[in-house]
């Protein structure tokens, strides 16, 4: 079972306890709106762009960004999904989520790919995603858009587009969904 989607019953019986709501749906909408504009500004339009949402939390964010880009520029930017389970450096330590799929609708060679995820933390998922992307063609450039950058990087990776910089402790959890962004803790059951 996914530790990021399913019911907040985690391995070891610990569960997510929400503490502080840091973004409301409206804040989230404004942040996505701004990020879409920044993506267009940086790339001087939508020509040659592909947005790729990381399974699983990045997929809906990528779809929202593509929607705003369409509204603003009239361009239909291809939107893909990428599952990095086979590329992680911790294979064997976590369950594989068989319902998540990779779907890259176009050859990436010569295009600018914007990787989209909900939370940027250690950077290891992005590292795996970069390796996975390379198997789909040689992109002209790869950029990174995240809703929340919570710090604690373990690799030299930085985002290009950020919804919100959110300082956290590493024992906290950040939950991003269309209904907002919440910081919480893991609690023992009972």
């Amino acid at each position: 079972m996914a530790e990021r989607d399913g019911p907040p019953e985690a391995a070891g019986g610990q569960r997510f306890v929400p503490r502080t709501r840091v973004m409301e749906p409206d804040d989230l909408r404004r942040a996505t709106w701004r990020m879409a504009h920044e993506i267009l500004e940086r790339n001087r339009g939508a020509q040659g762009l592909v947005l790729v949402g990381l399974q699983k939390g990045g997929v809906w964010v990528a779809e929202q960004l593509v929607g705003v880009v369409r509204e603003v520029s009239g361009a239909d930017v291809p939107c893909g999904t990428l599952d990095v389970a086979f590329y992680r450096d911790d294979i064997g330590l976590r369950p594989v989520l068989t319902e998540e799929a990779t779907d890259i609708p176009v050859d990436l060679t010569g295009r600018t790919v914007v990787l989209v995820d909900d939370v940027l933390y250690t950077g290891r998922t992005v590292r795996a995603a970069l390796n996975a992307l390379a198997d789909h063609g040689r992109a002209r450039a790869v950029q990174l858009a995240v809703v929340v950058d919570r710090g604690h990087r373990e690799l030299p990776i930085r985002p290009d587009f950020v919804g919100k910089n959110l300082p956290t402790r590493s024992d906290e959890l950040v939950e991003v969904s269309p209904t907002g962004v919440v910081i919480g803790d893991l609690a023992e059951p009972g």
Partner: peptide, 29 residues
Amino acid sequence: AAGAPPGPHEAADPAAVALPGGGSDDARA
């Protein structure tokens, strides 16, 4: 999650157990 024994970090760091709903760049990494 059920079958494998937790890695050393997972045992030491509560955040490494699970990230429900958020943070696909998660602590298991």
